[in-house]
């Protein structure tokens, strides 16, 4: 029997079919949202292989919890929350394994971002999209995972401070402080990268 063509079926109907055990319908959902789910994992983990593995784990969890999907948000948003939670668990696990965390030292010493001079020129002005993305890629990799996570949840997931605090199990003050640091550090890194590339 030929496989059913799901390419024109909407997400809601695919979820319904997948709940009945139709893995072809679920495969179509994976195909539609895989880039977004992988991108979120990569933004948070900064490691290609880890992001692939974790995003696949998120899909398996999604399949197992399909009955919990109420349709209050879109299926893509629901899946994104699953992958974010898995990434947070993974980052916590990695942090526990690090005995001498540079991030902890950096955060404890604190205050660097408060004294940084204000950058009057937009470091990304005039850049092409690809180049801009490459620079942000490099700058993001230099942030600690706590700062990066707050930035990802706020800028990409569009969470409010309160939601981020709940997700990361910290205070709203910590969220504000980490977000401020992440933005200022990112601005400084992007400026440095601009200087580097103009020297070459």
């Amino acid at each position: 029997m030929a496989d059913k063509d799901y390419s024109s079926t909407d997400d809601q109907a695919l979820v319904g079919a997948a709940r009945q055990g139709d893995t072809r319908a679920f495969e179509e959902l994976v195909a539609r949202h895989r880039d977004k789910i992988y991108a979120r994992a990569f933004s948070m983990l900064r490691n290609e292989q880890e992001a692939i593995d974790l995003s696949q784990e998120a899909w398996v969890k999604g399949w197992q919890r399909l009955n919990q999907f109420q349709g209050e948000s879109s299926f893509g948003t629901w899946m994104t929350r699953i992958v974010i939670n898995l990434c947070l668990d993974e980052l916590r696990r990695q942090k526990r394994q690090r005995t001498d965390s540079m991030e902890a030292i950096e955060e404890e010493s604190g205050g660097v971002e408060r004294q940084m001079p204000i950058l009057e020129v937009n470091p990304t002005a005039g850049l092409e999209r690809t180049e801009l993305r490459q620079r942000i890629d490099r700058a993001m990799s230099q942030l600690s995972h706590e700062h990066r996570t707050v930035l990802v949840l706020h800028e990409f997931e569009e969470m409010e401070y309160k939601q981020i605090a709940k997700t990361m199990e910290c205070s709203i003050g910590t969220v504000m402080s980490r977000l401020f640091y992440a933005r200022r550090k990112l601005a400084a890194l992007l400026t440095d990268l601009k200087k580097e590339s103009s020297k070459q």
Binding site: E120, P123, T124, A125, E155, R184, L186
Partner: peptide, 9 residues
């Protein structure tokens, strides 16, 4: 500056 960074990402 904060707005530029937000727009950049």
């Amino acid at each position: 500056e904060l707005r530029h960074t937000r727009e950049a990402v």
